[in-house]
């Protein structure tokens, strides 16, 4: 059976190495925080915070304390605050070990499209282009196919790119694929999903 959103987030949490600094995007990536378990992980929020805590209890919201999704959050005893230029210095400078992000399309060479659809409302890329250009490892969590049943993992992206050759690993409802020399490699399948099913659901070249 394919993974649901929570199971994809739980699987993505396995990507986080103990003792590292990590940035989680909006959507399913945000859920990854619930599955960190005993690992010592410091969450970065690109609006200027390391050591992001959980949502506040009602009545304790602080307008000066939000995450990059503009939600109210809390601080931890390890928290530090800094300005936006410093925040992206640590992102671009490769100090953040891993970013887990959503995507519209990923190509077999690691190209990523996740910020705009031509002809539709364009809201902007926010910090996504900086994150994928700078962090050490980029993990994409997304459904394998779009709502029309078409592969979101392609030979080439059709949408405007967020970055070129930036994706390291893709976690979908069907399994886990790595970007390797010459294409994608299936490294894991969801329970009762076969490699053959993943091949059929994938437009991109699979090399194993």
């Amino acid at each position: 059976m394919p993974w649901d959103r929570e199971q994809m987030a739980e699987r993505a949490a396995q990507e986080l190495e103990d003792g590292t600094y990590v940035n989680l995007g909006i959507g399913i990536p945000t859920l990854v925080a619930n599955y960190i378990g005993d690992k010592d992980i410091t969450l970065q929020s690109e609006n200027g915070m390391l050591g992001m805590g959980p949502f506040p209890v009602e009545g304790e919201e602080d307008p000066d304390l939000i995450n990059a999704g503009k939600q109210t959050i809390t601080e931890l005893n390890r928290t530090s605050y800094f300005d936006s230029a410093t925040s992206f210095a640590m992102i671009r400078g490769g100090k953040i070990a891993c970013a887990i992000l959503g995507a519209m399309e990923v190509a077999e060479n690691g190209d990523l499209a996740n910020w705009m659809i031509p002809g539709k409302l364009v809201k902007g890329m926010g910090g996504a282009m900086d994150l994928v250009a700078g962090v050490q490892k980029v993990v994409i969590v997304m459904d394998h196919q779009n709502k029309h049943g078409e592969s979101k993992i392609l030979h080439e992206c059709t949408l405007p790119l967020t970055g070129t050759g930036v994706v390291d690993r893709i976690i979908t409802n069907l399994g886990v694929l790595d970007v390797v020399e010459g294409g994608l490699k299936i490294v894991e399948t969801a329970p009762d999903v076969t490699e053959e099913q993943i091949r059929e659901a994938t437009e991109a070249k699979i090399v194993n």
Binding site: S45, N47, G48, M49, D62, P63, D64, L65, I66, N67, E75, Y81, F82, D83, S84, A85
Partner: peptide, 11 residues
């Protein structure tokens, strides 16, 4: 500044 209200104010 206070907490995440620093953000773009410095640059």
């Amino acid at each position: 500044f206070r907490k995440t209200a620093r953000n773009f104010n410095v640059p």
